Amino acid sequence: MSEFTTRWQLRLLAAQHDLVDACGGIARVMEKTGYSKGQVGRWNGGIDRDLMSLGVVLTLEEDCGRPFVTAVMAEFHGRTLTDASDNGKRVAHLEEQVAGLVEQAGRLVVETVKARADGIVTPNEATILRGISSKISGLTAAIDDALAGVQAAGGLKVVGGE
């Protein structure tokens, strides 16, 4: 069994910070847990940091759907978190998001070339390009969110590969 060292405590504190961010920041965590701004701030960082109670950890991890603190606690005991029933779906969804991003990026290139062909980008063409760019931003945010979940869970595994 590992010794609970400063390194492990710092990892838990960093996981708490990530958890507060994933749940929408200090104000949202205050609403969700009923704790004061000062207390949530001590969980989130600063000089005098506190560890969250298990009840708060469980509440917030359920709220954001990511096991930030639980994953560190499991790792402390030499374990990892897995969700075998969901892994294939998560991998497929991530691949689908990345494919959508590539598709929209290609579309943006094509539409940009078309718009610049006559040397003038009209307001209508700019509207089309902004729409595509907005879709790309949404896909990028969704991919970042999915990958943050993968990091928190300690990775994704494809069992029986496809």
Score class of each variant (00 low, 15 high):
Met52His: 03
Glu103Tyr: 03
Cys23Gln: 04
His77Gly: 15
Leu58His: 07
Gly161Arg: 14
Val56Asp: 08
Phe68Cys: 03
Arg79Ile: 00
Val20Gln: 01
Gly106Lys: 07
Val102Tyr: 12
Arg107His: 08
Met30Asn: 06
Gly119Met: 07
Val98Lys: 12
Gly88Gln: 11
Ala142Asn: 09
Ser85Leu: 10
Val159Met: 00
Leu94Trp: 03
Ala141Val: 11
Gly25Cys: 05
Ile128Asn: 01
Gly65Gln: 03
Gln16His: 00
Ala92Gly: 09
Leu139Trp: 00
Gly65Val: 00
Lys114Trp: 07
Leu13Glu: 10
Gly45Glu: 07
Ile47Leu: 14
Glu95Asp: 14
Lys32Trp: 00
Ser137Ala: 11
Met73Trp: 07
Gly160Cys: 06
Ala92Thr: 14
Val56Asn: 08
Ile47Phe: 13
His17Glu: 13
Gly41Phe: 09
Ala146Arg: 05
Val91Pro: 01
Leu129Cys: 02
Arg7Gly: 12
Gly38Ile: 01
Phe68Ile: 07
Thr33Asp: 08
Gln151Glu: 04
Glu103Cys: 00
Val20Cys: 09
Ser36Leu: 09
Ile136Met: 06
Leu12Phe: 10
His17Ser: 13
Asp50Trp: 08
Leu81Met: 05
Cys23Leu: 08
Gly55Phe: 02
Ile143Phe: 05
Cys23Glu: 00
Asp83Ala: 12
Leu108Trp: 12
Pro123Phe: 08
Val109Met: 13
Ile26Tyr: 04
Leu81Asn: 06
Gly131Ala: 06
Asp18His: 10
Asp63Asn: 08
Gln104Arg: 08
Thr59Met: 13
Ala27Val: 12
Thr6Glu: 13
Lys114Ser: 09
Asp83Gln: 14
Asp21Tyr: 06
Leu129Asn: 01
Leu108Ala: 12
Val72Asp: 02
Ile128Met: 03
Gly155Tyr: 07
Ala141Trp: 08
Ala153Tyr: 12
